[in-house]
């Protein structure tokens, strides 16, 4: 495997790579793609036809998977990485970046996705975890990773492992934005707290959050998540997408919310517009008109503990 030979890039090496030959898979190049996806919508698709609809609506990337989270939830069983053939068909159908999911800790699924030259790997709680103790060591891969988090400590642990983009976990497949809101509010609250803390309080904060100390120091200095900070999990309407942007998301992932709705084309386009113009209520009113029914939704409070996806991983 070529990825076994790649030099691990760490977050601390980002500013010091000033050399004279071409370097691939640097931290700057990995985070750079996440920067390009800002202010956009990443849409879950299960086949080439849906991928084309997503691209036509203005998606910045598509997430190729066999079943959207709502179906994973209703059908049950072990949810795994998608069939490489289906991922390849989606890659051929669009010109925008293509992402795909591996199970938490399943570094061989990640190696397969890298061999398929996927643009971003989502180590995702939506699939059934393969390892309940360890996540993938993402530094050793050349393809960048995105991971989910419920709070800042979890986000900084994933970045410590090499994630180049973070997203809220939310509660996927519910059409209910409440958990994404809870996670984003918690993340932004802790970023503000660290930014305004005294320097001599940072180790104690790192201990409380169970987060790498140097990343806590970076948040203290910059007042931001060290990598682009996106939102996912339960976004079903243009207003949901705009809400997450207001709360601090720099882009949104929409899973079941588009292709489980009654009019995917119109809804996909409306969510793209709502993300760009999230600060413009008149525009939001305009794009929200006549979109038909949103996806069937679930009350997160009525889900049994074992049905929750957000609690997978740590």
């Amino acid at each position: 495997m070529e990825n076994g030979l790649a030099t691990p890039q760490t977050y601390s090496s980002q500013a010091s790579q000033e050399t004279y030959q071409a370097q691939k898979a640097t931290w700057r190049v990995k985070v750079g793609l996440a920067e390009m996806l800002k202010g956009g919508v990443i849409m879950d698709v299960v086949n080439a036809e849906q991928a084309a609809i997503a691209e036509e609506a203005g998606a910045v990337a598509v997430m190729a998977l066999e079943r959207v989270p709502a179906d994973i939830r209703s059908e049950g069983g072990v949810a795994r990485m998608s069939d490489p053939r289906m991922i390849q068909e989606i890659k051929e159908a669009v010109s925008i970046p293509v992402m795909a999911k591996c199970r938490i800790g399943h570094f061989v699924e990640a190696m397969i996705l890298e061999a398929l030259e996927i643009d971003f790997i989502d180590e995702s709680e939506v699939l059934t975890p393969a390892d309940e103790e360890h996540h993938v060591n993402k530094h050793t891969f050349r393809v960048p990773f995105v991971c989910g988090a419920r709070n800042l400590g979890e986000a900084l642990r994933r970045i410590g492992e090499g994630a180049a983009m973070m997203r809220t976990k939310g509660e996927a497949g519910t059409g209910n934005v409440v958990e994404a809101v809870r996670h984003m509010r918690s993340i932004m609250r802790d970023i503000r707290r660290i930014h305004s803390a005294r320097e001599d309080e940072l180790m104690s904060i790192a201990k409380d959050l169970q987060a790498p100390y140097d990343l806590v120091v970076e948040v203290h200095q910059t007042g931001r998540m060290p990598v682009p900070n996106f939102s996912a999990g339960g976004i079903a309407t243009p207003a949901d997408a705009a809400l997450m942007m207001w709360l601090g998301a720099e882009s949104v992932f929409v899973g079941s919310g588009i292709f489980k709705s009654s009019d995917p084309r119109s809804r996909a386009k409306a969510i793209v517009d709502a993300t760009t113009y999230h600060k413009d209520p008149a525009m939001l009113a305009e794009v929200s008109k006549g979109l038909g029914d949103a996806m069937p939704s679930l009350d997160v409070r009525k889900l049994a503990n074992e049905e929750l996806m957000a609690v997978r991983g740590w």
Partner: peptide, 26 residues
């Protein structure tokens, strides 16, 4: 190429005497 081929390299930029860092992403 795709993201896996994205790279950075020092490259010339004609209006400037010294190379600039080119970050190429897809």
């Amino acid at each position: 190429g795709r993201q896996i081929a994205s790279f950075e390299a020092d490259i010339p930029f004609q209006p400037l005497p010294d190379p600039v860092k080119g970050v190429f992403i897809r």
